[in-house]
Design a protein around this nucleic acid. Structure first.
Lengths: 183, 183
DNA sequence: GGTGTATATGTGTAAAAGCACATATACACC
DNA sequence: GGTGTATATGTGCTTTTACACATATACACC
């Protein structure tokens, strides 16, 4: 039920196609929300039926037609209602990497270390991507107020990935020590 | 499809009832996996049909009968297969708190600050709970190897919550500065 | 005496999410 | 000439997850 609010939130910034919304889910919202593109297209259809958004089709020559969605008054109203009527809810997450970490008692310490090295590398690349993104997309001082959300959540994502890397280093150290004790 | 492996992972530590598994999901796995209790009971039934686990019913006098599940060879085998055949997959998450943060451009800075203060308090309580848990449940040096998973993931959860709190402080500072500039 | 919480296990049904596949064009790379 | 990627929007179907509710006992608190 919250996916619709995620979509509406993006549409308050600028009218977008389903394709563009999906890009933004993958780029800027990756650290707190995931959605499949088919889910986004279907939710947009529902939102239009309920008149929370409207769409205009722009024919294109060298690629398929674009369907650009805009938020309507009803949508803006409902979004604000949802935004201000909150209770602190814990996030719902499924992290296969940490799930595997939780079973490290079943595998060889060397395999565990290899796993953590890969995970660390993955997050190192993530931090790099974030730096690239920030250099091109980061809100400047003038429009910081208009892009506060992106400013805050991208910083969160960066800190999250950095603390992942630190945690990996710590866990690898613990495993190395355990190996030494074993000798 | 991964829920079953989460359940199997817990059952490698000790035979448990669905109720106990649900407790552990809420206590120690909260930082990387969420599951509803009805989902756990249904998955256990499927796992037993496929003979990955088995169950024994213990009648009780002062509360309903217990159904204690144990992992079978087939389950242990499949778990290890899954554990070692991985590709690094990004986590799937739905965090309503960060989703609301991403829409801070729509609300009053004072409302945003209040929101972050509540969120911070929530994570402060989380760190406190973690400290209490660690004092009673934390693996000691002797059985650290047997409880490596809990040792690593609880440390991850603690670091995660602490970095949430730091990030809240940072974001509140940014908002205060923006307010001052507005005057 | 009622309310809330804890123990313990479910069913029925709805909503959310994901997978495989479909269509159509174009540009880059080997 | 084939493969992969990017643009752009979907359908059909399955799996996963969640919600409301059901049952039964006991203990604490007001």
């Amino acid at each position: 039920m919250a996916l619709r609010y995620a979509i509406l939130g993006l549409l308050t910034k600028k009218p977008s196609t389903g394709y563009e919304l999906n890009q933004q889910f993958k780029e800027t919202m990756i650290h707190f929300w995931s959605a499949h593109h088919t889910q986004i297209y279907r939710e947009l259809i529902k939102l239009e039926e309920e008149e929370w958004v409207s769409s205009v089709i722009y024919p294109q020559e060298d690629s398929p037609d674009k369907k650009v969605y805009s938020i309507e008054d009803k949508g803006r109203e409902e979004l604000l209602k949802w935004l201000l009527n909150y209770k602190v809810e814990p996030p719902k997450l499924k992290d296969q990497q940490l799930l595997r970490v939780s079973m490290f008692h079943l595998i060889d310490p060397d395999d565990a270390i290899r796993f953590l090295e890969q995970s660390k590398e993955h997050h190192r690349i993530g931090v790099h991507h974030m730096n690239v993104w920030q250099q091109t997309q980061y809100p400047t001082d003038e429009d910081k107020k208009a892009a506060l959300g992106e400013y805050f959540t991208s910083e969160f994502g960066k800190r999250y990935m950095k603390s992942w890397i630190d945690w990996c280093d710590w866990a690898i150290r613990v495993l190395e020590e355990l190996k030494d004790e074993g000798n």
